[in-house]
Design a protein around this nucleic acid. Structure first.
Lengths: 165, 165
DNA sequence: GCATAATAGTTATGCGCCTAACGAACTTGT
DNA sequence: ACAAGTTCGTTAGGCGCATAACTATTATGC
């Protein structure tokens, strides 16, 4: 692959990351939230009370990051942390009533943002987009081992599917 | 737009951002670079010596961010900063010889990364992808004013083009 | 010509995210 | 049953990126 093509892709992903996050920050600021925190709240709303380690896995961030974010969200009164009954090490995290209400507002922003983001795309592109992005993310995922082979990556034998229908 | 659909898109973008950046970090670590710095080096290699304000604009990050990154890259010996002759306030940044050599290595990583990222996609998707991502980034761009209208965004009258041919 | 505005850069501070290192609690192997 | 390993959470430190506030220089208006 030649550099210009690679650069176009990598730069576009970088720019999208920056802009998307910046827009999230803008939308979240009135609620007193910072980018990343909304993901934690939404995950709790989606799955219910859970252990920080599970949150770390679900959010795709490391455990120390969860520790700090959770502490701040707790201080703000949006979540509650209590020791897990069956495991003395674990602390279970859950939304407070206020946190749930706040999350409802986040959900609306979430829709606004997506609507904004998808402006001008065809319906087909919109429906295919999530799968496409997940494929890209999966292709560069470093959490689970990527290919068990040595770094001579001439061509990966079993890539991710294009989209799953 | 319903929440699940919006969430799928937003979450996918978030995940891609995290994973792509993580992979960049992994690839850059052997060179002693951190994510974001490669963009500065590549921009200098692309455009030649330039003012920090121009770098800020080109990279899409704020000027204080450029200040700190540039200082670190200068300390590492990859770039050189000198006062601009025609403007006493400005400082022009350029690659050193070592920086240029390092950037050549970055370019190779860049190709590796893109190849990895695009694994399993059709040729058509690959060619359309940069334009698509740029559209998405442009749709959420907050630097230039987004729509001159009040925030009642029932539907934007003149969205971005699907792709520019 | 001079006050005023705009621009270039820096410092300070805060957040998300990371890795490394640690203690405490659970799980396992034998 | 107990040592060894694993997992959960935390602390400490570092980087990228952001905004706010400041200085120094350049450009503009009248």
């Amino acid at each position: 692959m030649d550099f210009d093509q690679a650069d176009a892709v990598n730069q576009a992903i970088r720019l999208l990351s920056l802009r998307h996050r910046a827009r999230i920050a803008e939308l979240l600021a009135p609620l007193g939230l910072h980018p990343g925190q909304e993901a934690l709240l939404l995950e709790l709303a989606r799955t219910g009370p859970m252990i920080q380690a599970q949150l770390s896995e679900a959010l795709g961030v490391e455990r120390p990051s969860v520790t700090l974010m959770a502490r701040k969200l707790e201080t703000a009164g949006h979540i509650r942390r209590s020791p897990a009954p069956d495991d003395q090490r674990a602390t279970v995290v859950e939304l407070t009533d206020g946190g749930r209400a706040l999350t409802d507002q986040v959900k609306q922003l979430w829709c606004t943002l997506a609507q904004e983001t998808l402006t001008g795309l065809t319906a087909q592109t919109v429906t295919e987009l999530p799968g496409l992005l997940k494929t890209l993310a999966g292709n560069v995922d470093t959490r689970r081992p990527r290919h068990r082979r040595t770094p001579s990556e001439t061509r990966a034998p079993e890539p991710h599917p294009e989209h799953r229908p």
